[in-house]
């Protein structure tokens, strides 16, 4: 096989993979620039050349502004807080699992595994009832708490895998130098563990950002409704107009942070996902 031939083969493969991965995104991006009359053209691209920004105007400064911007604020706030709590708890937990000898280590890991495969919808019914009774329905904490069932288990697994690769001699060295276990953890290990913690936070954020079931079940108004849930409740400018353009524009806006994170931290995310899943 000549290297020229190989290059062409790889170019073709790369184009195919890029088409696969990006085509649906390109599709909704193109839809987001279509005017209402353009939507039914049956063509991929908006017909008027550059397209229209009306859909973005509608959700950012127009009629749908209240609905979308509050949802965006809720999504960002709730996902960030749920990620933060999960990563803090998981960091402590994963450190103990990777480093300390204590009975019940396996129980904790198995529980994390069991929680991560738990059907979300099974949690929703009892929480729906309970939240209404204790006033957590349609509030931020009412979503943050169940989000922990999504973000915490994967954080524990990913971090435990990361922490097992840290050179722990450093910690022993610190302890021999007279530091307590806690000091050794804080001074010697935290700086080394930070990249793993950061990667875990990205993965946990993706998962919280993606949630739909909790979002539509445990909220009812703009106080706490997240973007995925709000998208499902978008209505057109008039009763007879489908909200296609506005939904597409909103979809693109909430996809931007995902694409940015992926572009910046591709290597870390891949290693986080593969280590957490398979390696010991």
């Amino acid at each position: 096989m000549t290297s020229g031939k190989q290059k062409i083969t790889w170019a073709v493969i790369a184009v195919l993979v890029l088409l696969y991965a990006l085509f649906p995104v390109a599709s909704i991006l193109s839809t987001s620039f279509k005017s209402p009359s353009d939507l039914t053209s049956g063509k991929f691209l908006p017909s008027s050349g550059a397209g229209t920004l009306d859909n973005y105007k509608q959700i950012l400064v127009g009629d749908a502004q209240g609905l979308f911007l509050s949802a965006l604020r809720n999504s960002i706030g709730i996902a960030l807080i749920a990620t933060f709590i999960a990563v803090v708890l998981a960091t402590l937990c994963a450190y103990a699992i990777a480093r300390l000898d204590f009975p019940g280590k396996k129980v904790v890991l198995t529980t994390a595994l069991a929680v991560s495969i738990f059907p979300v919808i099974s949690i929703v019914t009892p929480l729906f009832n309970l939240w209404r009774n204790i006033g957590l329905y349609d509030t931020w904490p009412g979503l943050i708490i169940p989000y922990l069932s999504l973000t915490l288990p994967i954080s524990i697994w990913t971090l435990a895998a990361f922490f097992r690769q840290i050179p722990w001699e450093l910690e022993q060295a610190a302890q021999v130098d007279g530091a307590t276990t806690w000091q050794a953890f804080r001074k010697a290990i935290v700086p080394l563990a930070a990249p793993g913690v950061f990667t875990t936070a990205i993965i946990a954020f993706f998962i919280a950002w993606n949630d739909f079931v909790y979002g539509i079940s445990l909220t009812s108004t703009e106080t706490a409704r997240t973007v995925p849930a709000a998208l499902a409740f978008f209505t057109g400018a008039s009763q007879f107009e489908a909200p296609t353009g506005a939904i597409s524009a909103a979809a693109i806006i909430v996809t931007i942070p995902v694409v940015l994170l992926v572009l910046l931290f591709q290597r870390q995310i891949v290693s986080g996902l593969t280590q957490g899943a398979v390696k010991g």
Partner: peptide
């Protein structure tokens, strides 16, 4: 490049994928 591309569907919101 390939890994970055592959991660886009992974990170995208399922609801967005559904609408697309």
């Amino acid at each position: 490049l390939l890994r970055t591309a592959i991660l886009v569907p992974y990170g995208i919101i399922t609801v967005v994928s559904a609408y697309a």
